[in-house]
Nucleic acid binder design. Structure first.
Lengths: 216, 216
DNA sequence: GTCAACCAACCAAACGGTAGGTAGAATTAT
DNA sequence: ATAATTCTACCTACCGTTTGGTTGGTTGAC
């Protein structure tokens, strides 16, 4: 596997400018949109010539999809870690919610680009890989929902629709969150735990208020 | 007020081609994105010359924002109608949920463009109006949530965060719904009523009251 | 003979990408 | 030790194409 492009790597051979390129591109793609951002814009922001960018990447599309893939892989790595833990489904869901919210808030440019700009047209040939990653995450989420419904922890509702509600609620963050705002990822996740897990929890299962801290 | 661009008008003076133009533009903007859709593409789809489009509109931006405004105004009209009805907050919320889901499903192109392509950069000078409409709808929704929390029908949770969860869940439809799919707007809304209103409902308000009911 | 509805031809600007080159550090050959 | 070579990290200059938008008409119905 390649060294990750968005976390500072210890590998000295992996260039600083390249990581800067991806960071700056993500910021501009978020601000202006993928199509409206020219390679010249990116070059200007980096203080280099446009042609120099092509020393690091092959095409503009590759730049976009690399950014998108990075976001998806973060999500998936956390998701798979949590799914593998020996926890009851409601705790897994809670953890997924927390990690998803936190990842978006802490990598806002990355996720905004990934969710808004990474469309079939913009991704071109790479769209297949993108969809594959997304599908793995959705399957993982639905697996937890199904588990909860089978063990009786959750009410029996349409898995897909509940999953989409979850993803919509969480991914919508990019539309309103203020990176300098007072709401921390923890606060956001905490309210939504009450709301979402509350709505999902089977009625009369003992614990009334799904606020926080109980058995694990 | 102008005759509405997306519902067949009885006004014979308002041209068919103009409505076709908006319909086709919305479809193409959804498929390829605003920037990637050229005026030539639209002209080709209409079977007329590119220059003829400029008989109906002034700029490409105007075309986009007119589409976006139409979507927002639908939402707002329904919202204001419901908010004015003499209903308890949970019924108002249920109605808003139903109408929002239905409007999106029945005007998928319109709402997809409005939610994905109508960005500050793309809308340019018109962005202000767009934001104003959006804010009115959000205020309306939060008003209902606040009302419910004050009357004790809903649990006391952060209004804004609950509102964003609602909007995220619902608006995310454009990302997964299949217009020819088997899930009707009614089915979707019905599951989400259970989920969302279930999570929001104050505990021990009659239905399936657990004995240990307490709240914070 | 007016006017709504359309058209062909054009334009300046901007676009992604390429060709071909260079300074200097690092590596290898002698 | 030094000369020859290769490699990294850029650069200037340019190309073909596409873009939103304009100009100056034409056509057919009333």
């Amino acid at each position: 596997m390649e060294p990750h492009l968005f976390s500072p790597s210890d590998n000295p051979s992996d260039n600083v400018t390249k990581r800067e390129l991806y960071r700056v591109a993500a910021r501009l793609f978020k601000q202006k949109g993928y199509r409206a951002t020219s390679m010249q814009d990116i070059a200007n922001a980096l203080g280099i010539q446009k042609a120099s960018i092509y020393y690091y990447i092959r095409t503009k599309q590759d730049l976009l999809t690399a950014i998108g893939r990075a976001a998806m892989e973060m999500l998936l790595a956390e998701g798979e870690r949590i799914a593998a833990e020996p926890l009851p489904p409601e705790e897994k869901l809670r953890e997924i919610l927390r990690s998803h919210v936190r990842l978006i808030c802490e990598n806002l440019d990355l996720f905004t680009v990934s969710l808004r700009e990474l469309t079939p047209v913009n991704a071109g040939d790479h769209w297949g890989e993108v969809v594959a990653l997304r599908d793995r995450y959705e399957a993982l989420l639905r697996g937890i929902l199904r588990e909860g419904m089978e063990t009786g922890a959750f009410r029996r509702l349409d898995e897909k629709l509940v999953g989409f509600a979850f993803l919509g609620m969480v991914n919508w963050i990019i539309r309103w969150v203020d990176p300098a705002g007072e709401r921390s990822p923890e606060e956001i996740a905490s309210v939504w735990e009450d709301l979402f897990l509350g709505g999902l929890k089977a009625e009369g299962d003992g614990a009334a208020a799904p606020s926080s801290a109980h058995h694990r």
